[in-house]
Design a binder for these strands. Sequence first.
DNA 1: CTGTTAGCGCTTTCAA
DNA 2: TTGAAAGCGCTAACAG
Lengths: 341, 341
Amino acid sequence: MAPPEPDEFGPRRPPARLRDVAEAAGVDTSIASRVLSGDGTLTVRPDTRRRVLEAATRLAYRPNTAARALKTRKTMAIGMIVPELTNVAYATIALGADERASRAGYALLVATGSVRDRLDAIDGRIDGLLVGIATSETIRMGDLGGPLPVVLVNRHELVGHPSVTVDDEAGSALATEHLLSLGHRHIGHVAGPQNSDTGRRRQAGYVRAMRAAGVEPAQDWMIEASYDEAGGELSASRLLREIPRPTALFVANVRAAIGALAAARRLGLSVPQDVSLVGFHDAPVAMYLEPELTTVKMPLREMGSAAVESLLALLDGRPVEDIRVSTPPELVVRGSTASPR
Amino acid sequence: MAPPEPDEFGPRRPPARLRDVAEAAGVDTSIASRVLSGDGTLTVRPDTRRRVLEAATRLAYRPNTAARALKTRKTMAIGMIVPELTNVAYATIALGADERASRAGYALLVATGSVRDRLDAIDGRIDGLLVGIATSETIRMGDLGGPLPVVLVNRHELVGHPSVTVDDEAGSALATEHLLSLGHRHIGHVAGPQNSDTGRRRQAGYVRAMRAAGVEPAQDWMIEASYDEAGGELSASRLLREIPRPTALFVANVRAAIGALAAARRLGLSVPQDVSLVGFHDAPVAMYLEPELTTVKMPLREMGSAAVESLLALLDGRPVEDIRVSTPPELVVRGSTASPR
DNA sequence: CTGTTAGCGCTTTCAA
DNA sequence: TTGAAAGCGCTAACAG
């Protein structure tokens, strides 16, 4: 069969409808529909099936999404709302989510911003929603997602919706234990926003590890910071000006850790000689800083796919429980940590 | 009117249809439809209008997206495909695009990956497509987007589709001129991928500025690099080992610039004493590096909104030309550039 | 093994 | 000023 002229830009013919395929194959639309959607219960003559398939291919048939959605009441798409696209963590979560969604035949539609704003835009286009905003919003529980099934990703604070998280507490404990094992005792914590679930759980992991080592972290060893360079710089700077000065800092976020590194430098302190630094979440940039940043790598991709898995179950009417991804966090030791001198 | 019980989680009633609204208002669906969609040609009694509006509000009516799309053959959504979400540049472009799209009543659906892969997923859900992949793909022009109207963002290499770009060449020239004005003559260029439009245009700007200053850049002053830290590190490292060594480097991307900074450091070179560095595109992280990175800031947000503007025109059947956003690039001088010693 | 039928929720002529 | 009617493209009983 001769391929169509590659450089032919004729007037665009309207896309083939199911009806066109059916007519071309000499069958009814209902047969064509069932053949094309792989209806297992259908018994059809091999030849009929072949004719339908062949016609669909020849006409480049693509089912009309709107018509199908109207009929089946399913859009076969799921939405995901994240605070910002720039964030490596969320990009990684989205990657895992997308892979899992595609495998199930769903499209993943990503939107940035607040749930309230964005939901209007994608409402009606999706069957369910992944909410990946870490900061608690003042949203009434019942409103989140409106009538849509919702799964919370990377937070589990809102009752009424199943959540999928990673073990932030274990990750933080791992980071803190690394510093403790190097001999640090006075370890400061550049904490995440305490109105966010992740911020609180990371702080809890830090506190737990400290106490397990017999060190009670004072209240002023922990300062909240936004998850960005500016926040990290500010809080680390305050921590590092305290007297006595902490010999190490566990920072609850990579971007904030970059800010903390800058803070140390601006105070004339060497890392890791004067102060050790551990960041949370890994990112390519960590290997290109001076010194290279020691971090804790979390199973973000798995979290994304697990979240879709849960949402799929929800859409299916199956019962869903809160999930904590079991892949253990991983300490990536680089140059920003050393024993105190 | 008493608000509904906030903590009431009764069985979810099915969403109200237009028909429900019409019945509640005691009118036909056609009237309700026209009142609610603000049909200007419609003449209705004020009271009728009020009843419809009131019923819609009371029933929390939300038009069914699929039904409307099926009928009107418009989804009121536009897609945008970008190579990766992590990239600040694309995140900024998406921001501008989203703002403009919302204003026009369109939802912006962002997808990552290759056009070929992603298009399948969002096909049928969008009316038009913004393609923001900088690297040339081996896609036949007519295939890009299938039957969908397409606008190219940040690239203009494929004929057959209008493009919206920023003046990368002017931006690169600006960066290069800055180095020249500091007295540098032997300026190396960590170029972007030369199979990408942006990479080529940035290199062209560099070459143009050099020649305008009477310096002919040798072939080995320019080394291609991927737009990430690893690529920048590799190419900068090679450039900085040449003899004689360049006194400055213009790097075609921020992430690559971070890699270049690392390369200099690893070679024992101080920035800006031994070598000056300018990056392309600004990012928050630039202010927290050592030294802080001098960059060129491009009007990315404007590019995003202009791209939507063009796509809207295309959807409207209006003729569309290639657009170069006129907002001039901006040099952000920080600590990574100085006169050669 | 295949076809008939009805209808998803909406918009839009056209007629009253 | 309002209503009746048709139909967008598809799926899923149900009949044959």
